[in-house]
């Protein structure tokens, strides 16, 4: 059974058909539980719009989105907030930690409005999982960029969400730290976590199992990452993925 079913999802801005700007156009796809998917495309291709729609934050102009059988945009605003809390974890390009809360409190953030009992214990466990058990009392300003990203990941998974949405999670990190974060994603995926990662960095997709490529709001390819990488490398016979992948 599919975890996500996107059915002819369109997003456009403007009421006048002649001048309407299409961000997404009849996007169809399904996501099975445990998949690790990369969404790539050049700027303006609709990656962020797609992520916002998947994140129950931006209703599509047309089409529907079912997650675990729930028609997400048939829900009221408040129910959609509950849905985000129960089904989704977000990792943004910037860690977006709350500056006045400690690492532990930042991780606890989604639990504050949930019924979970041992919120502190669970948050501490997540911090341990991302390797920051000893930095629970640090404020974000006292952490490195990589550590902040780890806290953001811990916050995203603390509710044990069926789906983790990541928007350029290593975009603002140096390559070494970025690699560590990708390893963390891979570890989460190995534990069965469904991950959808928007990126324009080909290096980020190395561990993903599936690559959806967008251009001008349309899915131009949806295939296993390995296949795409192999095809790209085969053109020049190097076996290495090409950076042109991000800009085609």
């Amino acid at each position: 059974m599919s975890l996500v079913i996107a059915n002819r999802v369109c997003k456009y801005y403007g009421n006048d058909e002649a001048t309407r700007v299409h961000a997404l156009w009849h996007v169809d796809f399904t996501i099975s539980p445990g998949e690790y998917i990369a969404v790539m495309g050049p700027s303006g291709s609709g990656k962020s719009t797609l992520l916002a729609i998947l994140g129950a934050m931006n209703p599509p102009s047309e089409g529907s989105l079912l997650v675990d059988g729930i028609d997400v945009y048939a829900l009221s605003q408040e129910k959609r907030a509950d849905f985000r809390r129960e089904y989704l974890g977000f990792v943004f390009q910037q860690p977006q930690l709350i500056p006045y809360l400690t690492s532990l409190e930042n991780v606890m953030l989604p639990l504050v409005v949930s019924d979970v009992k041992d919120k502190k214990g669970l948050a501490a466990q997540m911090l341990e999982k991302v390797g920051l058990g000893d930095k629970a009392k640090r404020l974000p300003s006292e952490l490195s960029g990589g550590e902040q990203s780890r806290v953001a990941i811990a916050r995203a998974i603390v509710n044990d969400p069926p789906m983790l949405l990541a928007d350029e999670p290593v975009g603002s990190l140096d390559s070494k730290t970025g690699s560590e974060i990708l390893n963390l994603f891979q570890a989460l995926h190995a534990d069965g976590q469904t991950i959808i990662m928007v990126t324009h960095n080909p290096d980020s997709i190395r561990d993903t199992g599936r690559l959806i490529r967008l251009k001008d709001g349309v899915i131009v390819s949806d295939a296993a990452t390995e296949e795409v990488l192999f095809a790209a490398s085969d053109v020049v016979g190097t076996g290495e993925p090409k950076h042109s992948l991000a800009h085609d």
């Binding site: 907030a81 509950d82 985000r84 129960e86 977006q96 989604p110 409005v113 916050r155």
Partner: peptide, 16 residues
């Protein structure tokens, strides 16, 4: 706005 966005993204209701 950003902070409120984070709250909303992680599942805070409007009433929260």
């Amino acid at each position: 706005r950003r902070e409120i966005g984070v709250f909303r993204a992680v599942g805070y209701r409007q009433s929260h």
